[in-house]
């Protein structure tokens, strides 16, 4: 499973990080700092929850 973030859509709500801090690293201003993350085994649910929390719908799970 892989997370893909469309950083141009990210507006810094930091909600992905609130649910899955290990997967969605933020920069100093609270915008997502990653564009592609391989989801480690066992963290699939956290990835889904983090993606489901993004108000901009900037996150896709592949």
């Amino acid at each position: 499973m892989k997370i893909v973030v469309d950083q141009s859509k990210c507006c810094g709500h930091a909600r992905c990080n609130a649910f899955a801090p290990d997967l969605f690293e933020l920069d100093d201003l609270g915008y997502v700092a990653v564009s592609e993350v391989e989801v480690p085994a066992g963290m699939e649910e956290a990835a889904q929850t983090g993606a489901g929390a993004c108000p901009e719908r900037a996150i896709t799970i592949l």
């Binding site: 810094g12 709500h13 909600r15 929850t49 489901g52 929390a53 993004c54 108000p55 901009e56 719908r57």
Partner: peptide, 18 residues
């Protein structure tokens, strides 16, 4: 669950104070 509400707006003017 999956509560991606827009109380703080959306787009570049997303509430700075959120």
């Amino acid at each position: 669950k999956d509560n991606r509400h827009l109380a703080f707006g959306a787009g570049p003017h997303r509430c700075l104070g959120s």
